[in-house]
């Protein structure tokens, strides 16, 4: 029961973000009221800088963000699961990962995304996803590697190694099945990180271009009129926060308790 309760926000916001565009009461790019109009009949959250319906735009503005973040989080987690486990089993690979992560720590994530997206003109969402994955991967690998290290040293992996198993089999059959909880929580954490990168990029106008509806872009566009209609800024801001938090909570709830213990040490 409590579990269901803690899963609820994630489900709710996911449904809103995915189905929102269909629920929007008015078109997202047509003015329906005066610019920055306060909430009134037909416009429950007021209007934005161009008099467009804020509710419609909020409903429409989450889908791309959600999907992009999800893609990034999944890519990072899957790649980290494979590479991190391999790194735990092969110290030489582990050292390379360490060095790459040491380099990446010198480059702030926002700078890296700026670099890739701006110089990859026409890259669009692919460029953004690439940058976000590249930025998050080294650390995710380190986390998986740290979690896999005790398993890599366990008796059954030793026995499998001595018994003649090769690396892919070790990764796939012996280690990864024991990391399910870790990976689930990692997925949650990477989702939060991906939301951060994707929204920040959108806020810096590196993502969806106007007149597309996007929560981060809405915050930027409507910031000048924040005093006239605060809802146009506050609601998308809250939506971003709730999205990040609820998914992370859901991942934590879904992970088995033993796994939580494991990740707790990370």
């Amino acid at each position: 029961m409590r579990t269901a309760l803690r899963l609820l926000p994630a489900g709710l916001i996911a449904v809103i973000a995915l189905a929102g565009p269909l629920l929007a009461p008015s078109p997202i790019d047509a003015p329906v009221a005066a610019p920055y109009a306060l909430p009134g009949p037909g416009v429950p959250l007021g209007a934005d800088e161009l008099g467009r319906n804020v509710l419609s735009r909020v409903l429409a503005g989450g889908r791309e963000l959600l999907l992009t973040s999800l893609v990034v989080a999944c890519l990072v987690t899957v790649a980290a699961a494979l590479l991190g486990t391999a790194a735990a089993l092969r110290p030489a690979l582990g050292r390379i990962v360490e060095r790459v992560a040491d380099v990446m720590i010198l480059l702030p994530a926002v700078l890296a995304v700026l670099l890739v997206v701006l110089s990859w003109q026409g890259g669009g969402r692919v460029a953004l996803v690439t940058a976000a994955v590249a930025v998050g991967l080294p650390y995710a690998i380190r986390v998986v590697c740290a979690a896999a290290a005790p398993i890599a040293g366990s008796g059954y992996v030793e026995a499998a190694v001595a018994g003649g198993e090769r690396l892919p089999q070790l990764v796939w059959r012996e280690v990864l099945p024991n990391l399910r909880a870790t990976l689930l929580i990692l997925l949650g954490l990477r989702f939060v990180a991906a939301v951060y990168v994707v929204t920040t990029a959108a806020f810096l106008e590196l993502g969806p271009q106007p007149p597309a509806a996007d929560w981060a872009l809405m915050v930027r566009e409507n910031a000048p009129g924040i005093l006239l209609n605060p809802w146009a800024v506050v609601v998308p801001s809250l939506a971003i926060g709730v999205l990040a938090l609820s998914v992370q909570t859901a991942a934590e709830v879904l992970a088995p308790r033993s796994g939580r213990q494991v990740v707790a040490r990370l």
Binding site: Y139, V143, V192, Y196, L266
Partner: peptide
Amino acid sequence: AERLTAARGPAAPPAW
């Protein structure tokens, strides 16, 4: 390492 259930951002947990 620290007990983190929320690592955030690309500058993720400093566990290592």
